[in-house]
């Protein structure tokens, strides 16, 4: 359904429009392609899993399916904070597996044209690993970092993930 919607819109605007879900982490705004996002849920009880990388918060029960949860703050080496009522888990499909990502707040779905995406600047101050930045969107009063989560787990890291301990 989402695909159909995106298609219609993109035809209307000349074939270059994409939709992003925007979310906040440490007061910065990030965007992720809406087609990656399965659902957005409130915080649940997370079961810690031993011997995993520090940014793996644990696993949750998503309607009978057990999925791993990653804390994006920890992943990006940002300061940790307590969860509040705005904290959300974004459930996404990354390389064929469902995963949840904890973010501070999910704000909206925005439409941008592909032309607005600029390549990421060479130096990134916030500590976000360069490779998972797909680009930057610079609009009148906001700066949005576009993430590519598939790239977040490099081959090396995926191996680390499975052979930890």
């Amino acid at each position: 359904m989402e695909t159909a919607l995106t298609k219609v819109k993109s035809e209307e605007y000349g074939g270059e429009l994409i939709q992003l879900v925007s979310f906040n982490l440490e007061k910065e705004e990030y965007g992720i392609n809406v087609l990656m996002v399965r659902e957005i849920i409130r915080m649940l009880n997370i079961t810690r899993v031993p011997n995993t990388p520090h940014y793996v918060e644990g696993v949750i029960n998503l309607r009978g399916k057990v999925i791993p949860i990653i804390n994006l703050r920890k992943k990006f080496d940002l300061m940790e904070n307590d969860y509040d009522k705005r904290t959300r888990i974004m459930v996404m499909e990354v390389v064929g597996e469902l995963m949840g990502f904890i973010v501070d707040e999910v704000s909206e779905v925005i439409r941008i044209s592909e032309k607005e995406i600029q390549p990421p600047p060479p130096v990134v101050s916030s500590g976000i690993e360069q490779e998972c930045m797909a680009g930057v969107i610079n609009q009148a009063n906001r700066l949005l970092v576009l993430l590519d989560l598939e790239k977040m787990f490099t081959a090396d890291e995926r191996r680390l993930f499975t052979n930890v301990g």
Binding site: T47, V49, P50, N51, T52, V56, V59, N61, G64, K65, V66, I67, P68, E97, L98, M99, F153, R158, F161, T162, N163, V164, G165
Partner: peptide, 19 residues
């Protein structure tokens, strides 16, 4: 028994999960 998915497949001492 529920699988932990392929990202957490080979954790030492953990065989899976349950609800």
């Amino acid at each position: 028994i529920k699988s932990l998915g392929k990202f957490l497949a080979n954790l030492p001492g953990i065989g899976g999960s349950t609800i």
